[in-house]
Write a protein that binds this DNA or RNA. Structure first.
Lengths: 344, 344
DNA sequence: TTGAAAGCGCTAACAG
DNA sequence: CTGTTAGCGCTTTCAA
């Protein structure tokens, strides 16, 4: 194995000089720097991560705690993970993957064993046992998803977090439909388990939906559904029975999208002539659906990227703190149209 | 921070004794061991990962190189990743997540900087630039997916690998349909990009399908498709035009499953009365499809688990090498039935 | 059964 | 601008 000492000898300088060339923490004359760089390349030197961690108490590793729970939509999670790792690499960090199963023990392990410099925590619940550990921790962390019902309450926890503004997203959907003249709207939500475990995003969306519905004077019906064809069929059928005049549908459940479209086709309800559909889902899902969907996108990439960038900023001293909500972006596609059409 | 020296002092022993209690590499008298253990708990001591890595040249970290390419089915990838991390943790290892983008540079980094003890590489192509690096590497690695067209050729590379026996899986599908009396079968395959980049599994499946078709005297038509409704509709429509008597369908493209079922429903072809469908996909997809599908499951969990266990075995001296193919398991569900039914 | 001591490879004062 | 030196916290011979 090639060590820093080998490089120093080869270049005829001291070890510290080599170290400083690597870190750039002090100015080195051009000739020696080049000579050292040449030796590094010639010997194929790579700094030993463990040694560096021991001496500098920095690991250049970020820990990513991923959920592994029921009702979670895998592609979004994966996209965030990928965005996290690529962004992290671009800042010189590696990513350590931790599953949610270990819970707060994992937080303590990262902290105690100096395995990572900071951590990103996904899918936090409102009463998540990891939160207290994170608050006490020396190392910085960022949550993806808010640890509270509102941004203010989230700020009050003292923890950093990044998320889509789901409340505004819900409102945006209703506004869009209301603007097209729809007055009766149904919401197909996440599976019941998601609401029950207090993962804020679903609740916040609902709050936004209801507020906007109130403001625009439209009727709103909310139905949590599992992402299976049978469950969607049952829920939608009941909705049309209970509220015959329903012409607008909001879907916040990626797995339910295709089943829903298949069902509507099957029932002979045309989209958007008879029913307008707005989804809250990743763009990819919306674009590739059998009817391209008007949607508020869940910006998975941006969430991952933002989380890393905040962490990197905090690790380098700059310390932007608090809650950051990403404003929703609604893209009109083929699945929504004026309500008047349905009357004809 | 609590160090091993602190624990030693607190327990009134030498540092090495504490170290040996932790590693179990030499026998310690019951009383001292208990005393030390007590000090460890009392002080909340955690060994410093970097220091340990430096002194022992073991990191207790496995690197996982994930693909990030077009046409890959995310849930399977994610399931493997989760199985890898949970299995790894159960053996005392952490998992470092690397994206495929870095390519062979990542392999060298892991090797050179001693970032991980071993690596798991997913989605290897036949002429993957990472393969030579892995062959030269000191540290062991396991591929998920074969680095060659056949198991023998994969063995010849000298690299360890784990995969579903896709050839046998393809054959199993044809046998099942042939056994039900179907004589004209069409295959909806992965997107063209998957075949083009030489990711072995799709090609191996096709080989198995064709061999079995030959052996059973059934006609086989193969169509790569993108996982969109439009693409599936076009492909299937053409199949039925070109080969009117087609009654059996094999799908190896998770994203195409729902579009396919929706289309058949739309065209008035009943499953399985008019058309039998067999899928090669994760059980979860098969079970939750709008028609529960007869399928050969892609055992994502098992693949991840096996990969880790081989690596752990090799790291601890035991060295089972070579290619390991998981035999396919076909589960009959509601989507297949006798061909005679279609005639009536 | 236990201790003492020499590193592992790198960083960061402290000197010049 | 560069070198000297003392660790970082742990493992592991070598001695007792």
């Amino acid at each position: 194995m090639v060590t820093l000492a080998d490089v120093a000898r080869h270049a005829g300088v001291s070890a510290s000089t080599v170290s400083y060339v690597l870190s750039g923490k002090r100015s080195i004359s051009a000739p020696t720097r080049e000579r050292i760089q040449h030796s590094i390349d010639a010997l194929g030197y790579r700094p030993h991560a463990g040694a560096r961690a021991l001496a500098s108490s920095r690991t250049d590793v970020l820990a990513l705690m991923m959920p592994l729970r029921t009702g979670l939509y895998v592609p979004v999670t994966m996209e965030i993970a990928m965005a996290v790792t690529t962004t992290a690499r671009s800042h010189g960090y590696d990513v350590l993957l931790l599953t949610g199963e270990e819970g707060s023990e994992a937080v303590r392990r990262v902290e105690g064993s100096a395995v990572a410099d900071a951590m990103i925590v996904m899918d936090v619940g409102l009463d998540d046992p990891r939160l207290p550990c994170l608050q006490e921790a020396e190392r910085p962390s960022v949550l993806i998803g808010l640890p509270a019902e509102t941004a203010e309450a989230a700020d009050a926890t003292g923890l950093d977090s990044v998320d889509l503004d789901f409340g505004a997203a819900g409102a945006r959907c209703v506004e869009h439909l209301a603007g097209l003249g729809h007055t009766r709207i149904a919401v197909l939500g996440e599976p019941p388990a998601v609401y029950e475990r207090g993962t804020g995003f679903a609740a916040r969306t609902l709050t936004g939906l209801r507020a906007a519905a109130g403001a625009h004077g439209v009727g709103l019906l909310h139905r949590p559904v599992e992402g299976t064809y049978a469950a969607v069929a049952a829920a939608v059928t009941r909705v049309f029975e209970e509220r015959p005049g329903t012409t607008g549908l909001v879907v916040q459940n990626e797995a339910a999208v295709e089943p829903l479209l298949a069902l509507l086709r099957h029932q002979g309800r045309a989209v958007p002539e008879d029913v307008s559909v707005v989804a809250i889902c990743p763009d990819q899902v919306a674009v590739h659906a059998s009817v391209p969907l008007t949607s508020v996108s869940v910006p998975a990439q941006e969430m991952g990227r933002l989380a890393v960038e905040r962490l990197v900023a905090r690790l380098s001293g700059g310390a932007p703190r608090g809650t950051e909500l990403i404003p929703p972006r609604l893209t009109p596609r083929a699945s929504t149209g004026p309500a008047s059409a349905s009357v004809s």
